[in-house]
Each structure stands twice: as C-alpha cells, then as structure tokens.
Design a protein around this nucleic acid. Structure first.
Lengths: 339, 339
DNA sequence: AGTGCTCGTGGAATCGATTACATCGACGGG
DNA sequence: CCCGTCGATGTAATCGATTCCACGAGCACT
C-alpha cells in the first residue's frame, strides 16, 4: 500500500507538502497542489489512519458499549449513534456486554487501548473500578440509558415516570387492581427506577406493590418467563404484569401461552420499551416508548461536545405510553400528563 | 497516560527490555521481568495499541460490514462474529450498510483506512469497484451470507435449497397450489437464489411461478407490506406467500391484518430466516432457519485463517424448515431431504 | 588461557503520518 | 539599494511501540 513518501516521490515534492495538501493547509502553491492530487489519484493513495492517530493523538472514533445487542432497543440505539457519529465525522466501535460486567470491562479496556476519542456506555452494573478510573482520568465519557450515580459524566436518558403514571392510570381505568412488575437488575439504574416509578404511581391510587408482585429479572427473555410462571403460581395471581423491558415481556408472553392462558383475559401485559414486533404479537402489546433515536443522537452530540472541549449536556427526554390491546379491550386514548 | 518510556524509567531498564517483557520474549532475566511488571502495575500502564499497530502492521481487528443492523438475523450474526473473534484475540468493528451500496462503500473505505486485518462482508450489491479492488489487492476478505460472483474470496453461507424444497412439500401437502414469493433485490445473491430455489421446488410438483406471483422487495418491512397488498389485489390472489426474509414477512403480516384477513385461513405465510419473535406472533410463523451462529463463527475462522496465512475455507451449511402454524393447521413433522 | 557459545541488555532504526523550524526567493517601502 | 516580510517549501523531530544489531559477561570446551 502506497505511503505518503511514495506520493511525495511521484509528485516531486516533499512529504511535508503532501501532508499540507491533504490537510488543506493554506500555503501551498496551486501547482504543487495539483501535482500532489494527481499523484494521489494515480497511486490510489489513502492516508494511514493508524499513523495519523499516533501523531495527532486523535482517532476520530467513539466507543459504544451496550448491554445487549440482541435487544432491539439497543440495536436501534446503536444505529442512531452510528448515524449521528458519521454525520459528525466519527466512526463507532460497538462492544456488546451481553449484560455481563466482565465483558463490559473487557470492551472498555480494549477501547481505551485503541485510544478512542470518547466512550458511550450504558453500564450493566454499578460501576467497575476500571470505568470509574477512566472517568476520573478524564476520558470523555457519556452515559446513555443507564448511568452510574456519583460519577461526573453527562447522562442521556429518558424519563419514564410520567409514562408509567399514564400506564397505571390506564390499567386502573380498565379495572385492574392487582398489578405486578418484572424488574430489571437492581444494580442498574433503569432496573431500580422503573420499580420505584411503578410503586409511586400505584400509591397515587391507593394501591400497594407487595413483594410477591415484584419479580426479579435480568432484562433477558428467560427471566421474564420464569418470573411470570412464579406469578401465575401464586394463590392470588396478579391481573397485570408490567415487564421492565421488551425481552422480559416476550418471556412473559411465552409463559402465559404455555399454560394455555390468554392475554389480556387471564393476565394483562405491558412492557417498557416499544419495539416494532409488539404491533404484530397476539395481542399487540401496550408499551412505553422511548425516543430511542433521539437518545442516541443526543448522546453522541454530548460526547462530541466533551471531546471537542465544549461542556457536554445531560439530556432527559420523556417516554410516552402507547396503548394497544394487551391490557384490555376498547382502549381510549390516554392523556399524557406532561409534554 | 503513561508510555513505555515511563515504565522503562520507573523500572530502571531500557524500553527494549520493557517491550520484551510485555511480549514475553524468552531472553529476559527474572529480575528485570519482575521490576518491569511492578512498574507496569504502579503506573497503570497499558500499551498504546495505535503505536503497536503502526509498527507491527497488525491491528488485531476485523471489519464487519452488514446489510442491516435492524434485521435480527444480522444482529445475531454480528453477535456470533464478535464472540468468535474475541475468542481468537481479535476485535470487531461493525459497519451498518442499511442496504445502501454507498454506505457500504463508506464503511469499507474507513475500515481499510484503519488498516483492519481483514474484512467480513455481506454485500448489498453486485460489487463496487472499491470492494473488487480491495479483494484484488489482497486484503484478507470473506463473504458471509451474500457474496459477489467471480471474486476469489471464500464464501460462508447457508444453502436453503433443500429447506425450500421441504417447505414446498409441506405447502403442497396442505393443499396449497397458488404460491407466491416476496423476493429480495436481484443485485444480491440471496435475493436471486431464493426465488430460483422456490421456482425449482414448485416445478417438481408441476407447479408454475408466474410473474404476477413474484413481488419485488428490498429485504425491509415496508416492501413486504406493499408487495402483499399487491398480491391481495390480484383477481386470483395466491394462497401462500413466502417472504425471502424475516422483515418482509412482518410487512406481510401487517398487510393481512390491515384488511381484517387472517393467517393462514385467508393467506398462508412462510419466511426465510427464523427469528425468536416468530414463535410469539399470531399465528406463529413457519420459517426456514439458518444456523446463524455457526455461520458467523465459521466466517471468522475462515477470515482469521486467511489473515494468518492459512488457506481459508468456504463453508456452506444447510438451512432447515421449522414448521409452525402460519401455513395451515395440524402440522406433521416434515422429513428433511438432506442432513 | 584462548576460543566460541549463549544470554541479557541497550542503542538506534523504523513504521507513516504531522508540524515546528529553517531556508530561500520575490517583493515592496523607505 | 537594502532590509523586512511573506509565501512556498524542505529538513528533521516526534508520537509509542517493536526489533535488528552490537556488546559484554559468563561459561564450557579444548
């Protein structure tokens, strides 16, 4: 592969001049410029990004460590992150933590070794020493979706509280009184928050959230199935199950069908995270939709701001309830409590 | 961030010795080794992968350019690719072409600029000059799922012919005679192949595949919906629609429901690519399952073989039919014609 | 004791770019 | 006519690693 020296030789100039042409530095004669560009063309020269990065200490690359690539929510997030990054002149390296803190650390480490310019993370746990060190050491970093409390890093996420209130209003309006939740891992912020928001919203209707109605899941499908089976085995099973993410909702659907029961007649179902497939399931699933694309884009903008020396804003966007048929028939549009 | 010089100074040795310890070169004294390791520890030193790559001309990174991240089939592929690569000591940079040749070229170009060790591609088109040049220039490359004919590059894919025959046998056995297909882009190998396999299998039963029953899709959901609407508007609509990928099958489901029709009574449906959600749709969708994980792993092994100077095998694995309820009731197990 | 190993080590070149600094010619003002 | 300035260019240092080569010490063999 041709290097800058070859181009210089071909054009009859020094490597410095070639470099100046390539980075369009002002003081290059028109003549030299055309000769260099011609040489670049004939040799099919492309600058070596590795060498350039070593010298400039910039890779124009962002690292994105997500919790689970098989989760459509994160897939969509990854997609919007890559799009926005590309628009701003950055590439993205994605690492899949698969909800495992050890894998998350592995990816953070290799990304730092590659000297990526900045890191976008949705942490699977409460914060490993490695990540805390990186944050303290000043690596530009932004948390997206989930975050680690007490670390001085911008957070881009959506606030589901209002939507959870809307959901509970909807459920209450349909006559449901025994409401259960399949929670995410307590080590994650979203895992905790969704339970709290649910409990609070229930409280506004004088309803309780007993421990038996809080099932511990791990954001993956199998845990949703197991927790739902547990609910169905209770002496007094819940009327509604609220799954804290889309995969656990699928597991719940599985459990209900396996017993020959029906949604929503025997058990109503709602989920956090709206995905395309929920329109096509039987019945279509009522869900809380996050502005996923916006989150990804805002996260990239915040990160690039930090990288380029600007402040880097935390962003919180509202989620909204999408009513379908999985909680009961005849859905009447629910007013959002905030906009 | 500490560099190798800092470590050398701290340990009281030369950078050469530090480098030897880090790459466990045999001729280093035990004493020097422990001093260096101690210095590494106290400084929290991590080698700069950029500098190392410049010198060794190896990045230990693979590029993966996939057609569409939002397609669960490719997501699963990406996941298995990353896993196998990690096991072999490589990282993966994923580029999402979104079924657009221009984006595909963009990603190939930036990956080459980063001097990735090898490239894994499932081409969205018949082959851009850029990709052909890269292949000719000797960049280690492997095609996965889709490929470009006439290029000397290993291909890792699955052969759906037998499974398509099984599908047609299944459909014929259920009494269906008017069978239609939603095809993928003719510029892709899988787009063409699946139509041909379907036509051939029909021929074995004396059935025809008229042009009116071949709908042109683009592997994304919306096209599946439009094509299906077209089928339903025909004077003599098909009894079955076979979608050449999972997203177009979802579009088809959409179209059927929008008219208040039912699967399979009014229109039966089958799809290429089995995904988890097909179990949960109404009705569960009969599909042809590829050994996606195996494909990803085999592709990585083939690529790493080429990178490390070994031959690099093309691999073709069989796909298999998974019968569910979307083509008619009372499914009897279908014998696979090959194993 | 001299010769020829091996082993451990350091100095310095190298990878492919960017960029500070030096140089040189042309040109305009005093 | 001379000097200062500016524009275009080249030389060489530099980024952080790897690795070739040289060197000295220790040791075994003759």
């Amino acid at each position: 592969m041709a290097s800058i020296k070859d181009v210089a030789a071909e054009a009859g100039v020094s490597v410095a001049t070639v470099s100046r042409v390539l980075n369009d530095h002002p003081s290059v004669s028109a003549d030299a410029r055309t000769r260099v560009l011609a040489a670049v063309e004939t040799l099919g020269y492309r600058p070596n990004a590795v060498a350039r990065s070593l010298r400039t200490d910039q890779t124009h690359t962002l690292g994105l460590v997500i919790s689970d690539v098989m989760n459509p929510y994160f897939t969509e997030l990854a997609r919007s992150v890559e799009e926005e990054a590309r628009a701003l002149g950055y590439s993205v390296i994605i690492g899949n933590a698969d909800e495992r803190p050890d894998l998350q650390d592995h990816h953070v480490r290799t990304l730092l070794d590659r000297r990526i310019d900045g890191l976008l993370v949705s942490p699977t746990d409460g914060g490993s020493p490695l990540m805390l060190d990186a944050a303290r050491a000043g690596t530009p970093m932004v948390f997206v979706d989930r975050w680690i409390p007490g670390v001085d890093v911008p957070v881009v996420r959506s606030d589901g509280r209002a939507a959870v209130r809307d959901l509970v209003a909807h459920l209450h309006g349909l006559g449901h009184r025994r409401l259960a939740i399949i929670a995410g891992p307590a080590a994650t912020t979203t895992g905790r928050e969704r339970v709290e928001a649910f409990r609070e919203a229930l409280g506004a209707y004088g309803l309780d959230l007993p421990d038996a109605y809080i099932g511990q899941g791990d954001f993956q499908a199998e845990s949703g199935r197991l927790v739902t089976e547990g609910f169905l085995d209770l002496a007094e099973p819940p009327e509604v199950v609220f799954a804290a993410d889309n995969l656990m909702a699928l597991g719940a659907l599985d459990a209900v069908r396996a017993r020959g029961l029906r949604v929503p007649d025997d058990l109503a179902l709602a989920a956090f995270d709206d995905i395309r497939w929920f329109v096509h399931t039987d019945p279509p699933v009522t869900a809380i939709a996050q502005p996923t694309g916006e989150l990804g884009r805002a996260a990239v903008r915040a990160l690039v701001d930090r990288i380029e020396g600007r402040p880097g804003q935390s962003v919180t966007l509202p989620a909204r309830l999408v009513v379908r048929r999985s909680c009961g028939e005849n859905p009447t549009p629910v007013q959002r409590s905030t906009t």
